[in-house]
Simulated scan of single mutants.
Amino acid sequence: MKKPITRSSTLFRQFVLSLTFPVLLAFMLAGLGTVWITWSQQQSDLALQKESMLQSYREALVKPLWDCDNNTVEGILVAMMYQTGIAWVQINEACREQILQAGDAQLADNPDSVEVFTLEYLDEKGRGFYVGTLEVLFKSQSIQTGLADNFWRYLMLLAALLASMLCITLLIFRRLISNPLQRFQIIIEQNKNRTDSPLVSAGAAATQDNELGQVMHAYDDLMQELYDVITQLKQQQATLHDMAHTDSLTGLGNRLRLEDVLTRALARSHRSGQAGCVFLLDLNDFKPVNDTWGHAAGDVVLQQVGERLHELLRDTDVAVRLGGDEFVVVAEEAGDRSAVTHLAEKIRQRIEQPYAFRDQQLQVGVSIGYALFPDDGESSTALLARADQVMYREKRNR
């Protein structure tokens, strides 16, 4: 059973012992001075927090703006509105030339009160690309308002202290505070997915030997369990997302992954002016391998094709299995057509090398079509269609 709370450990006793006449007198004399010091310190702290907060949000906004991910940008703007002191925020993003904002736009009618920040993305070569501007309007607070707010808080606290010293008795205190807190603690423990009885004491490890210490101990345990559950759910979500975007046989991306990669690559190509390339690969003589040696041999060939593409390509390039014996390679900053032709030949030579299956050396060919973006298309559908035309023209000429 739960250990009963003794009178010596009650909040009522601690409350009475901690409040004495000198403390009340000092409170009265130091009230205004404390209010002034508190307000001044708050202003200094708010200025530092404001600069740190803005720096963090500016850094958080650059990557989604570079990726044209306006949904994430809007989420960050909404999060900014929960910060103390922010009245309105707006993003003028350069990718789609849209204006995204949160808060009351009417508050930003005075341009002198709006702070404007330029946002740039730095690539691995240290080059900066303009991705948009951030405009922020902060709520203003006069010194009179700050002093008045804090002064009234102190007056209300003093009135509560005096009323407590005159009116509160042990019986009333326990009826209004202690008993509800005990019931609250039991409710928390009952809702924690525990195997032991909810009546087992959770306050033994509390830092305070009173009702609040026990409640906070139980609350901390509950919050830790909730955090663990949320963490597991996020991990499972990430795992499911990877599985949905990954080809189970080769470990490369699949069609869903290809659509996402091409959309982002096109957006970055528009901003940087660097041309990219989409290669479409179709294995030749793959069906005879399946017919002669079985699907196990075909699976080995497909897996080794995925491994060879992974070894051959740069870290910035992405290879996916489109389906069957078709593969796609997305290469950003691929250079001119001569560089693209050279890369296609390297891919061909590597793919057409023999594949070991048991004691046999299997041979397949490959037809490669390509399309440069943004010259040959402005969408993933158009680029793949163009690459498909080039690939089948090569097949007919072989």
Rank of each mutant, 00 (worst) to 15 (best):
P374G: 07
A331G: 07
V329P: 02
L362G: 08
E345Y: 05
R308L: 03
E311S: 14
E326H: 03
A319T: 12
D375S: 12
K346W: 08
T316R: 08
S338R: 13
R314V: 13
Y370H: 15
R348T: 11
R348W: 00
F373P: 07
E332L: 03
T316Q: 13
Q361S: 14
R337I: 15
A334S: 06
Q349W: 06
A334K: 01
R358H: 11
V340L: 08
F373D: 01
G323C: 10
D359L: 05
R350S: 11
D317Q: 08
I368K: 08
Q360N: 15
G324K: 04
A331T: 07
V305N: 01
F327N: 01
F327E: 00
F327M: 05
I347L: 09
V318T: 14
G306M: 02
E352S: 05
V318G: 02
G365Q: 05
A331F: 07
V329C: 06
R350D: 10
G369P: 13
L343N: 06
I347R: 06
R358A: 15
L309S: 06
I347E: 03
E352I: 14
L312E: 10
S338A: 13
F357M: 09
E333S: 07
S338Q: 15
P354S: 08
A356G: 13
G323K: 08
G306N: 04
L362Y: 00
G365N: 09
P354R: 03
A339N: 15
G335H: 05
A356E: 13
V329L: 07
D336T: 05
R314K: 10
E352C: 11
Y355H: 05
Q363D: 14
A319W: 04
D375T: 15
V340D: 02
A356I: 02
L312K: 10
F357T: 08
V329G: 01
V329N: 00
I351Y: 04
L322C: 09
F357Q: 07
L343K: 06
P374S: 06
Q353N: 14
V328R: 00
Q349N: 13
E311N: 13
G365R: 04
Q360R: 15
Q349G: 08
G323P: 03
D376G: 12
L372I: 04
A371I: 13
G306S: 05
G324W: 01
P354D: 09
Q349M: 13
E311H: 15
V328Q: 00
V320Y: 00
D359S: 15
E345R: 14
S367L: 06
V305T: 00
V318A: 01
I368H: 04
D336N: 05
R358C: 13
I347Q: 02
D315F: 09
E311T: 12
E345V: 11
E332M: 06
D317R: 07
E311K: 12
Y355M: 03
D325T: 04
H342G: 03
V364M: 05
Q360H: 14
P354H: 08
F327R: 01
Y370I: 09
L372K: 03
T316M: 10
L362D: 02
V329A: 06
G365W: 01
D315V: 12
D359V: 10
G324L: 02
D315L: 14
V330F: 01
V364C: 12
V366I: 10
F357I: 06
V320K: 02
H310D: 11
E307A: 11
L322A: 15
H310C: 11
R308T: 09
R308G: 01
L322N: 05
E307H: 09
V318Q: 06
D359P: 07
E345G: 06
Q353M: 10
